[in-house]
Design a protein around this nucleic acid. Sequence first.
DNA 1: ATTTGTGCAAATCGTTTGCATCTGA
DNA 2: TCAGATGCAAACGATTTGCACAAAT
Lengths: 128, 128
Amino acid sequence: MLRKAGLRPTRQRMALAELLYGRGHRHISAETLHDEATLGRVPVSLATIYNALHQFTEAGLLREVAVDGTKTYFDTNLGEHHHFFVEGDNEVIDIPDGAIGVGAMPEPPPGYEISRVDVIVRLRRLKA
Amino acid sequence: MLRKAGLRPTRQRMALAELLYGRGHRHISAETLHDEATLGRVPVSLATIYNALHQFTEAGLLREVAVDGTKTYFDTNLGEHHHFFVEGDNEVIDIPDGAIGVGAMPEPPPGYEISRVDVIVRLRRLKA
DNA sequence: ATTTGTGCAAATCGTTTGCATCTGA
DNA sequence: TCAGATGCAAACGATTTGCACAAAT
């Protein structure tokens, strides 16, 4: 998988790939991934985590999700879909495919093309 | 206007309000506003800029636009609308009202309510 | 052997905070 | 007068970078 993406399968990258793709889709931040790697007896430096996340993203293995807050999240789900974002908890949740539909697409300004459309449904926790 | 929002009309806040609302709608970052204020012979400290932007936002005079995580943009357009975001230039552009429509709204997970829906259409500059 | 990746620590960026000083009602 | 606002500089958290060392082809 890494080889196919043009990335050398190093010990660290393989361990990270395992964490990322080992069990279903995930939304993960650099910090979280670093913690998981460290706990999972594969100490990887933070710099390497960032390198890997960006390389994976460039290689099309991950997708960056810009929600809010100061953190960057990476999504292992590459399919067309959108996100819930829980304000306060900074939690990202997939919106089931088809549960939301973007209607008419606006015409991009001249000289530009649409690269992607992101829909973020912000959630607030109900009191009581 | 400031008074109505429960904010003391100080010299700085009035100058910033003038810059923000003086000529049409704007998408502005703290840094940009700071530069404008400084150039406009009203030196305001960066800390005060941040204070003002957040207070204006809380008072409902501004809206925070989360596009790319690294920088925070504030929008003087309070109406229902969405945004184009030019990758690379980090430029935010309003999508004309009605040019985009969000269809079926997903059911929020139990215990949560929808606070807002943001649509961001990411643009890439056409080469050539 | 050569290229590429890794780790560490220092550096950067946007933003926030503590605190002493000022200012508007 | 005096609560509230401002400015400065230091503190911050997330991310990036420079460079010596290690590992993959």
